Simulated assay, not measured.
Amino acid sequence: MVNETVTSREMRAIETNAEYYGISLLQLMETAGRNVAEEIASRFNPKETKVAIFCGSGGNGGDGFVAARYLTCLGFTVEIILATRASNITHESTKKNWIALQSLRNIISIREIKDSLLIPNFEVDVIVDALLGIGQSGRLRPPIMQIVEKINNTNAFRVAVDVPTGINSNTGEVLGNAVKANLTVTFYKPKLGFEKAKHYTGEVVVKNIGLPVELERLVGPGDVIKATKSREPEAHKGEFGRLLIVGGSNTFSGAPALASLSALRTGVDIVTIASPEKTAIAISSMSPALITVKLKGKHITSSNISVIQNHLESATALVLGPGLGLHDETKEVVNEIIEHVEKIKIPMLLDADAIKAFTDFKRKLECAFVLTPHAREYEIL
């Protein structure tokens, strides 16, 4: 499902996936900055308009650098005020655009603010706020806090790049103080918090920066960003997932073992593996962090269902299938487990033999699920 608005985390994920699929952050920054410049040019006469662009050290500042270059090309008088030392620019694309501006110092005035006492006075017609972007969350600090105050005290037309500085783009919360923009040029989609922050965003114009909406449907490294939540210092074991892996047989013990070790490595707090007894004992020896449920029999049968269902009640997700085997009884168990998961509504991943078993009774599943077929398994699906 594709939403009409986007959160900062979703936007970061989309940008990361874009890079994975060949659309660089430098390309996105170039398009974003050009869009800002073109929007300003559509509203103001370049021969009569002075523009001051306040830039931060991150990606938002990079958008501002690009906008400055395009506005200069369009005939505007442009001044850039960098709200930090140039040495603090660490964002790679922003750094490249900063370097590009150095050859234009004879036509673009560039200042670095190294102290809040050094904020210049400015008499301009348009101010571009490219200080902080969608990642801002904490209260504003000097010198940005003082810059925002100065921006708001001018009569200039104020343009925010993507989101006004001082606004949490997810919640619309004002982070102490915020730029009161006349116009916000935002990218890809409106941000989730804009409705609440409409007194600060002013008019909102959404610009396409070359991100296909399909990037929200394609899986890539950015999805790890969306799936990962930050760990608070007081967090305790269990808050970051309780995974149950049902798999293994007397013949196959490696697959469930690798799945469980991978889960631990990616940050799952508690990993439990339900496997036939001999397989479970072998897996137990691989890590003291693994919890094993030793099921009776050489492979999983209907006699194990009640035990598996009991452990599902405390699980937050299920992996079903690695090393499971394709005994007739096991296939029936796969169906029963899936039906139970649909009732308790936890996410489920079907892998390997569970996929093969699923083809015997495949249907639309009533829970969140992921399938991991290889080419041959995909064919039978």
Rank of each mutant, 00 (worst) to 15 (best):
N3R: 14
S8Y: 07
S8V: 05
Y20P: 02
Y21L: 08
A32I: 00
A37Y: 11
R43K: 15
N45Q: 13
P46I: 05
P46Q: 04
P46N: 06
F54W: 14
C55W: 09
S57N: 06
G61E: 07
G62V: 04
A68T: 13
R69T: 11
L71H: 07
T72S: 13
L74H: 08
F76E: 14
T77C: 11
I89K: 09
S93P: 01
K96D: 11
L101D: 04
I110F: 08
I113H: 03
D115T: 07
D115G: 12
I119K: 05
N121C: 12
V124E: 05
D129E: 08
I134T: 15
S137P: 01
P142W: 10
N152A: 09
T165H: 09
S169N: 12
E173A: 15
A178K: 12
K180G: 04
L183I: 05
F187W: 03
G193W: 03
Y200F: 13
V205S: 11
V213T: 08
L215A: 10
L215C: 09
G220R: 00
D223E: 11
V224Y: 02
K226W: 03
A227K: 09
K229G: 11
A235R: 04
H236T: 07
F240I: 06
S253E: 02
G254Y: 12
P256Y: 11
S260F: 09
S262M: 09
A263K: 12
R265W: 11
R265P: 09
R265S: 15
T266D: 03
V268N: 08
I270R: 00
I270D: 01
I270F: 06
A274W: 14
I281V: 15
S285Y: 02
A289L: 02
L295R: 02
K296P: 00
N304S: 15
S314C: 01
A315L: 04
V319K: 12
L324M: 08
V334Q: 00
V334Y: 00
E336P: 05
I337D: 11
E339G: 00
H340C: 08
V341P: 10
V341Q: 14
E342Q: 09
A352L: 06
I355G: 13
A357G: 10
T359N: 01
K362Y: 10
R363W: 12
K364R: 13
A368W: 14
V370C: 12
L371A: 12
A375L: 03
R376M: 12
